[in-house]
Design a protein around this nucleic acid. Sequence first.
DNA 1: TGTACATCAGTGAACGCGCGTTCACTGATGTAC
DNA 2: TGTACATCAGTGAACGCGCGTTCACTGATGTAC
Lengths: 215, 215
Amino acid sequence: MSPTKARAPKRSTYRHGDLRQALLDAGLELARGGGPDAVVLREATRRAGVVPNAAYRHYASRHELLQAVRSAALAALAVAIENELAGLRRAGNPAARARACLRAVGTGYLRFAQAEPGLLRTAFSVPDDLPGSAVPEKAGSSGLNPFQLLGAALDGLVDAGVLPPERRLGAEYLAWSAVHGFAMLVIDGPLRTLSPPQIRAIGQRLLDMVEKGLT
Amino acid sequence: MSPTKARAPKRSTYRHGDLRQALLDAGLELARGGGPDAVVLREATRRAGVVPNAAYRHYASRHELLQAVRSAALAALAVAIENELAGLRRAGNPAARARACLRAVGTGYLRFAQAEPGLLRTAFSVPDDLPGSAVPEKAGSSGLNPFQLLGAALDGLVDAGVLPPERRLGAEYLAWSAVHGFAMLVIDGPLRTLSPPQIRAIGQRLLDMVEKGLT
DNA sequence: TGTACATCAGTGAACGCGCGTTCACTGATGTAC
DNA sequence: TGTACATCAGTGAACGCGCGTTCACTGATGTAC
């Protein structure tokens, strides 16, 4: 063995730095491209430049990694909705403002679905019974999950006198179903051949329907 | 080799009868239990009592078998909707009747989703751009696909003067999104923990929302 | 400030699995004479 | 009605693949003295 060879570090990758995060990032990238099924443990380790079993130092199983990815995808959706809410120009009228908030939640959801179909599919693949399960991550976020953001918008409608209180209970399910269904049909259902402008137009009509049908 | 042994037919399974149909049935059974991903060619042949490669006499690939299953699942959904429509007691009022038809389409869809979640997921896994693609199969069916049945119900609303004609275009997408989204959230989304009565109740409120929001 | 040592993040090799698919075959069936 | 033959649906064996996961290991790093 030559001295020069010996001088080169035998293992360049020791102490990766933050493999846990690197695997999560790789997992997100995979989910982005192909939804939950694409989150393959071996591929994630490959992308992190590490041997497959190294993942087990940070996640107990492929399933656990997938859950982490799913949770991050849900957080990303929440951020998208919050951005939409933050971009709202304040209307004078409280009723109009409350309506605009609900629309913003829906629009944020649909925008995210178009921009990140793989992540949306991943976010709603199986677990999470929603209501609870806060979503910390990124600073600057409210820590509310998308379901809770929707709930807040509906509460706002009640406060503004737009939505009769007796119709408030369970209204999340109705609004969410409509928006989620449209997102799904567009993402990989029979509506995926619609053009982006068509999608935007129908999406707005959908939100009209929800607003009118709910109040 | 003893004569008795020789007397037994060496291959009992020659000429299966209708392997194509048997594989389709097995595929449907698999889809019923686990959605599109569960439609595994080898397992289908196992269930049909045949060697794996025998499938290639009838389907060019696993994908082709899956498409056949998907198409059959779509036909089953259409039948469920038609049954719901057929069970309608005729109202005197044409407007009420038209509304009832739309509700029946939605109710049939949701019922099917609850009864056959795996088939519903399979029916909308990827291909089929819908509008066209008739659905023959079972005699006694109209040959219309679910999308077309929904379209007919909406046409009925226009004819009865309930839905303004200028709102008719694309109305399928809106109604369908709401119902489909709810079905998805209930099947394997965050609403799967709701009890059947809750699901039924919210489903009806959802149809209220669609009807009110659309017209 | 220097040395001994425990920790534990990553390595290397291997496992068993079930999958889709290809190949050359065999023999029951239906048809033509 | 009987025989020869072509067809082609199913067999048997094998392939290469990528997966998740387990095992015993190694050596860089941080800590205690």
